[in-house]
């Protein structure tokens, strides 16, 4: 495929630069986990412990047969996580975020695929106008609409309920645009054949369009889930009650209350980051596809 050759030295230089840059890029995430596994006394030291004690000492202890001490070491390393789930609302916030992100993803997949199906495969007066009206609003940055959005949510009496975080997400237009582009590439003959066989319009959508649009749906699901899980500013505004905080807002409160307990703060950050890292590593190709297909990240 590629005929361009790079000399051996050139390759070595490229790898050196990339590896160095990757290390710099990944240090912050590494530092989240390292700090979270340290006990309070180990955090405020100079020079900092670049490798957590539990990692550097566990194997030597095990190999020299001191299983009890090794177990105590692991126990101590998990101390801040224990504190996090016992003394703060972290578990609750985690569930809130999980529920809201899952509902947002399901809702968006359903609503957007229906709308996209109609825009891509049906003829009706005003279709183009409605489509461009929706897509046109994508250029408006969400932050510009914070105040009127808050007023709408307040009028609907949704402030301090999870609905205030969930429902506005269902209005995002990106997915309609992306899925329509995807569905335009699906041949219409399949629909016609089903129609002749007496399938209802909903049947065509549900049994023909959705299965064929699976790759597009998977991509949209991943992008929606991540952006929902990570969103911060809007939930910060819409929710003031601790019981309905999402994880990022909860982390903000945690930080406000424990300004210098870095191992506790970092264990909280780790709890928020791990699901996203797992989702990303398992669905990497969908991230790449989604970004190159639709341009913007949700």
């Amino acid at each position: 495929m590629k005929t361009r050759r790079v000399s051996k030295i050139g390759m070595a230089v490229i790898y050196a630069v990339l590896i160095a840059w990757a290390v710099i890029s990944l240090i912050p995430l590494y530092w989240v986990f390292t700090t979270s596994l340290q006990q309070p006394g180990e955090v405020d030291v100079m020079p900092p412990k670049l490798i957590p004690t539990v990692i550097s000492r566990y194997l030597p202890l095990r190999l020299s047969g001191e299983a009890e001490e090794a177990a105590a070491l692991v126990d101590g390393a998990l101390e801040s996580y224990r504190l996090l789930f016992r003394k703060t609302n972290m578990g609750r916030w985690f569930l809130n975020s999980l529920m809201i992100s899952l509902c947002a993803t399901t809702g968006i997949l359903l609503l957007d695929s229906m709308a996209a199906f109609s825009f891509a495969k049906k003829e009706f007066p005003g279709r183009n106008f409605l489509f461009w009206l929706m897509v046109g609003t994508m250029t408006i940055p969400g932050q510009v609409l914070l105040v009127p959005m808050f007023m709408v949510v307040r009028e609907l009496n949704l402030v301090n309920t999870p609905w205030a975080v969930l429902l506005p997400q269902l209005s995002m237009v990106f997915g309609v645009f992306m899925l329509r582009q995807f569905m335009l590439t699906i041949p219409s003959e399949l629909m016609e054949a089903a129609r002749i066989d007496g399938a209802s319009e909903f049947g065509i959508y549900w049994r023909i369009m959705l299965p064929l649009a699976k790759p597009g749906l998977a991509t949209l699901a991943i992008l929606t889930f991540t952006s929902s899980w990570n969103s911060f500013l809007w939930p910060l505004i819409a929710i003031q009650k601790s019981e309905w905080f999402t994880l990022p807002v909860g982390l903000k409160t945690l930080q406000d209350q424990n300004l210098v307990n870095y191992s506790l703060l970092m264990s909280g950050a780790a709890v928020a980051a791990v699901p996203m890292i797992i989702v990303f590593l398992s669905f990497q190709k969908y991230f790449v596809k989604g970004l190159t297909l639709g341009g913007v990240k949700g």
Binding site: A22, L26, P28, V32, F232, K252, A272, M276, I277, F280
Partner: peptide, 12 residues
């Protein structure tokens, strides 16, 4: 490696 920090939220 270069995308990983992007998936962790800006808050983290």
């Amino acid at each position: 490696a270069f995308y990983l920090p992007t998936v962790a939220s800006s808050v983290v």
